[in-house]
Design a protein around this nucleic acid. Structure first.
Lengths: 340, 340
DNA sequence: AAACTTTGCTAAATCGGTTTAGTTAGCTAC
DNA sequence: GTAGCTAACTAAACCGATTTAGCAAAGTTT
């Protein structure tokens, strides 16, 4: 109907003072700029009375600060990312930052475009699960002295802040645990991806298998953007590799599809097949039998992310140090990996 | 290091033409404003060459359009909301809109604050799961002729766009299904909430119970912001109400906690207790026994949401009609509710 | 009482675009 | 030969804030 949003000029006009004075007072610079307490109070009272709030766009244009943090995750509907998103948002919110997010769907072009769009909007900082091929785009952000933190994965050649888990070690531990339990033909199911976290998980598997002189069973499925439905592919794998006696799923959605495939094939866990999945999930805790999983420390991870970022935003000196945090992801041993 | 972001004046200066001309060309108004094809091409070529992109903040300040949609959900880490978020974002992205989101955590003050902050940032449209007590804040948005769609729940007294499911009918159907299966003492576990969707689910239960002359077992748990851990409360409920032979969980997180409570109590589903939950979840599909659930039509819901919103954004006439969509939420019958 | 400070406030530039209202040069019309 | 028209472009206002530079009046110093 009526667009009666007040602007600072309205305030100034009504009180018969200058815009400058109002601005100083609203920004807490009254003392510093020697505005009298009397006038300060009068302005604050009136502003409150008419419920004036500044136009954030105009402020941002002038100051260059948007108080926005861009969050680019692989897929916001994945519980891991959704939980990280919630915790980040909660923290950021408290400190006056809002989150603007998008899912990259592991698509290089979409990820590049997202970085461009966020940049256009002058967001203050970036939290990114980087997609292969976006290394240069991120390098450009750094070159402009912007605040960036990568998580879940990173670019080894890029000097950035990052928070990840010890993918290789935790996977190594998980595979060793299966071996200790007497499993011998352990498969590693993953998605086709060049991202560090997936490579490291594979490295952990390879090391454990090699050290124990076992046979490798590695299957990489093409990454699926929609639905994350790998049931059919996993079923095919098990039909082909009948002697496999344990399986490690390299992501939570593979784990979920895998359980369904195993159920369909009427294989018993852990008697017929031992199971461990990367990422924990309500399902793994409550499934019968319960599923052993590597649990990413989501709270710690989110807290580190936001702390590093806010610190970085504050200390805007060029060539500041970057932090690379590696968190431990514990193995939650449950029934699915216990033979005895 | 260097902040070498180009601005439109740089382009104009380099080509020795006016800023106006560049702006017209970039906004596709070259023909309309009678800029020669020759110059148009030259400008576009140069802009591409130096990779200039306009400052979106400045554009927004001038035009009043931000191409931002604000999404306020109860909790982004709830799979239902996370999935809706992903689908909305996917659709909005295609049409040039970005999403800025926040979780209200069902907290009236936070929700009000979020609406205020989004408003300050001049976002173009709002998608909201409204929290009790925010009716007036939303009314104010409507008064300013802004685009708003509510979902999951709504305010009956407020003339807004909304997309919800037939909570009462689907719950009624679910309870009738339990009764047909021979369950007699059916409990309804919910959270303390005055929101329409929860009330309607309760209404559906009440009607089914009344029509069949059964006894009501209703328990409302205080809403928990963090963790959504209702295991202990639900366990207590079952210990107290030993004769209950079936249970309807009014939300997915109650369902998940409920399964854990039932597991801890060593009750067998469905022999000792029949189970149905509102909202579907990977866990319900894969649990043993599989859990009957009312599945919200997430794709349909998201598509309706974004369509209504974009239509509304386009037709900005005052007093335009509002759409109230009610979708059917089917009952997915699984093992947990079958006696025979 | 002139010179200098301090107090209290403001005009105008600025951020980087869009848009309104022209201007200029060349051509046609009569 | 000048009035009128059009093609091609531009100066300047504007969006709504922040910030720099500076001014007038009162107070203080010498």
């Amino acid at each position: 109907m009526k667009k009666n949003k007040l602007v600072i000029a309205d305030i100034a006009r009504h009180l018969k003072i200058s815009i400058t004075t109002v601005s100083f007072i609203l920004n807490g610079k009254a003392r510093e700029k020697r505005i009298s307490d009397e006038l300060t109070e009068k302005v604050l009272k009136y502003v409150k009375e008419v419920n004036y709030t500044p136009n954030h766009l105009a402020q941002s244009l002038r100051t260059g600060k948007t108080d926005l943090i861009g969050l680019i995750v692989e897929n916001i509907s994945n519980p891991f990312f959704a939980n990280v998103a919630r915790l980040i948002e909660e923290n950021a919110y408290k400190r006056g930052f809002r989150i603007i997010y998008c899912s990259s769907e592991n698509d290089t072009e979409k990820a590049k475009e997202l970085i461009r769009v966020f940049h256009e909007r002058q967001i203050d900082a970036y939290i990114i699960t980087p997609t292969t091929g976006t290394e240069n785009d991120i390098r450009n952000l750094l070159r402009e002295n912007l605040s960036v933190v990568l998580f879940d994965r990173y670019f080894p050649d890029l000097q950035t802040n990052s928070v990840v888990v010890d993918n290789a070690q935790s996977t190594y531990n998980a595979i060793c645990h299966l071996i200790e339990q007497g499993f011998q033909r352990i498969a590693f199911l993953t998605v086709e991806s060049d991202q560090t976290q997936m490579n490291q998980r594979l490295d952990g598997y390879n090391r454990a298998i090699k050290e124990n002189h076992l046979k490798k069973y590695i299957k990489k499925f093409p990454f699926q953007k929609k639905g994350h439905d790998y049931i059919e592919s996993i079923t095919q794998f098990f039909k082909k590799e009948k002697t496999v006696d344990a399986v490690f799923f390299a992501t939570n959605y593979l784990g979920i599809s895998g359980l369904e495939a195993i159920k369909n094939l009427n294989k018993k866990i852990p008697a017929d097949i031992g199971v461990i999945s990367f990422d924990d999930h309500d399902l793994f805790r409550l499934y019968s039998p319960s599923i052993t999983a590597i649990a990413q420390p989501i709270e710690q991870l989110s807290e580190q992310l936001i702390n590093i970022l806010l610190e970085d935003i504050d200390s805007k000196k060029p060539n500041r140090k970057t932090k690379k945090i590696v968190l431990t992801a514990p193995l939650i041993v449950r029934e699915s990996s216990l033979r005895r």
